[in-house]
Structures are given as structure tokens and as C-alpha cells.
């Protein structure tokens, strides 16, 4: 039987932990709201962008642009891995990392070289432990980032692709499905796959005769690199929202476990106290009996 004091100390400790997990839960929920707002704000840009691109793509012979060309021989595969900088968010990061590493192993088995582009500390640390090259590691960015971050990654990836250092690029990120569900997704970024369904809603608008400046092909050449950045940015935003949602769930669980633990420890405390009272009573009664006799 533990002593009364031990149990008391332990209860106090668990209560402190609970305070921390509860606070982290609230911080994560505030940050999640911010991240969701940013996704919301990004939506008008993205939808207008897709409209424009779909409209143009339907008018131009898009096979000419190097970013659209599918290469026959793929020697090097770039993996853009978006994770969080901090832990304590359940299996969120490990899910992403497992997905990325599996993908890397598969590519390596096909005889391709793999290069990692990492955003977030957790992914970077994991990628560094592998034999693959880490071409880019951006840590401490997920806390507050803007389009410039996607711009930076995009420029690097596109340049590497155009100079044939990379032959394909895949992004692994955490898609924010709902509060309770975040999925690790591997999305091919380069070469750009033509998307029929994106072009379809723009069809009625294309009846209008536009003046293009520069000509359609030139505009497309400007739009396509940006399309990659838009996709990267979307991935990053989703990852950030997923991270906070995952942390909220993890901290919620932790808080609940703390409650359970406090409950059972309090029970133990009461039992221990009762036992010691009973023992004392027995002593007193025993002593009184002895005096009587």
C-alpha cells in the first residue's frame, strides 16, 4: 500500500498535466480556426485561378509546355514532405512520414533516386535518417507562413525539374477532411496532369472572345508554374489545419485520460486514508480493552 502522501503528490502531478493538455487543446483549437480561415480566404483565389487556367488550357495546345511533358525515363523523384514542426499531435506526423518513406522505398526499388524537400522539423528529422538526399529542409515555418513559402519551394522544384535534376515531383501532405479525419495524401505535382473536370465548368465562359496578352501559349507559360505553387500552398494550408485538428484530438484524449487517472487515484487515496483510520481505531479499541481487563 502506498503512503497517503505519495498518492497526494501523484494526484497533484496528474492535475498539473491535465492543465497543460487542456491549455494545449485550447491553443490548438484557436490555431485551427485561424488555419481554417486561411483556407477559406485562399478559396476565391484558387477557384478563380482554376477557372482561368481551365479556360486557357481548352484553347491552347498544351502539349508544348515542358512542365506538362511526361518524361519516358524517370531517374529522379522529388518528394515534397509537409509535416509539423512540433509533436504531441497523435499519429499525425508519423502517418505522413510513413507514407513518404513507403513512397520513397517504392521509388528506390524501381531504381529511381529520391530527393526530399521537407517543410517542418518532424519530416526533416525523419528524412535525414534515411539514405536519400535531403535537397531542402525548411524548419520552423509552419507556425506562420504565407504564399512566399510555397513560392520558394515551387521555384526550387520547378528549376530542378527544368534542369532535369528531377523528373517527377510528388507532394505528401495531410489533407484536412474533417475535425476527426486527416488523411496523408501523396499528390503528383510534376509533370502537371491535365485535369478534365477542372476545365469543364469554365466551358460556357469560353464562348466569349478574349484578347490575350501575351498570346495564349505565353500566358500558359506564366500560369503553369503558378499552378504548381498554388497546389503546394494548398497542401501546406491543409497540413497546417490537419496538424492543429490532430493536436486537438490528441490533447482531448490526454485530458480525458488525466480525468480517469485522477478518479482512480482519488479512490486509492480514500481507501488508503480509510485503512489508516481503521488501523488507528483498532489500536485505540485494543488499548482500551487491555486497560479494562
Amino acid at each position: 500500500m502506498p503512503s497517503l502522501k505519495d498518492v497526494k503528490v501523484k494526484i497533484a502531478g496528474v492535475k498539473k498535466t491535465k492543465q497543460i493538455t487542456k491549455a494545449m487543446n485550447m491553443v490548438a483549437s484557436a490555431k485551427l480556426r485561424g488555419a481554417q480561415q486561411r483556407i477559406e480566404r485562399f478559396r476565391p483565389y484558387a477557384s478563380k485561378f482554376y477557372d482561368m487556367l481551365g479556360d486557357l488550357a481548352s484553347k491552347a495546345d498544351s502539349s508544348v509546355h515542358p512542365l506538362l511533358e511526361v518524361r519516358e525515363e524517370i531517374k529522379t523523384c522529388g518528394i515534397v514532405l509537409a509535416t509539423s514542426d512540433r509533436g504531441l499531435c497523435g499519429s499525425f506526423n508519423s502517418n505522413l512520414i510513413t507514407t513518404a518513406l513507403k513512397l520513397a522505398a517504392k521509388k528506390a526499388a524501381e531504381g529511381k533516386k529520391v530527393k526530399f524537400y521537407c517543410v517542418g522539423k518532424k519530416g526533416r528529422d525523419a528524412a535525414r535518417k534515411t539514405d536519400h538526399e535531403v535537397a531542402m529542409a525548411l524548419a520552423d515555418q509552419m507556425g506562420s507562413f504565407d504564399f512566399q513559402l510555397a513560392n520558394r519551394i515551387g521555384l526550387d522544384v520547378i528549376n530542378a525539374y527544368l534542369t532535369r535534376e528531377l523528373d517527377e515531383v510528388i507532394m505528401v501532405y495531410g489533407e484536412f477532411v474533417s475535425m476527426a479525419k486527416q488523411l496523408p495524401i501523396a499528390l503528383p505535382i510534376l509533370p502537371i496532369a491535365p485535369k478534365e473536370e477542372e476545365a469543364a465548368p469554365a466551358a460556357p465562359a469560353s464562348n466569349k472572345e478574349y484578347i490575350y496578352e501575351p498570346a495564349v501559349e505565353g500566358l500558359l507559360a506564366e500560369l503553369l508554374p503558378r499552378f504548381i505553387k498554388v497546389q503546394l500552398y494548398r497542401g501546406l494550408l491543409d497540413t497546417s489545419a490537419s496538424e492543429h485538428a490532430a493536436r486537438m484530438a490528441a490533447m482531448d484524449n490526454a485530458t480525458r485520460s488525466c480525468d480517469d487517472m485522477i478518479g482512480s487515484l482519488t479512490l486509492l487515496f480514500n481507501k488508503t486514508r480509510q485503512a489508516s483510520i481503521t488501523r488507528d481505531l483498532m489500536d485505540i479499541v485494543g488499548g482500551a480493552e487491555a486497560l479494562k481487563g
Binding site: M52, L56, E209, Y210, I211, Y212, E213, P214, L219, E222
Partner: peptide, 16 residues
């Protein structure tokens, strides 16, 4: 390709 100006009732136009 240089600065442009838009007044009301401009024809459809798309530019970088």
C-alpha cells in the same frame, strides 16, 4: 507588354 487602361464596357481581356 506595357501598361494598359480599362474603362467601363471594355471587351473581354486577359493579361499577365
Amino acid at each position: 507588354e506595357g501598361e494598359f487602361g480599362i474603362l467601363p464596357n471594355h471587351i473581354p481581356f486577359l493579361s499577365a
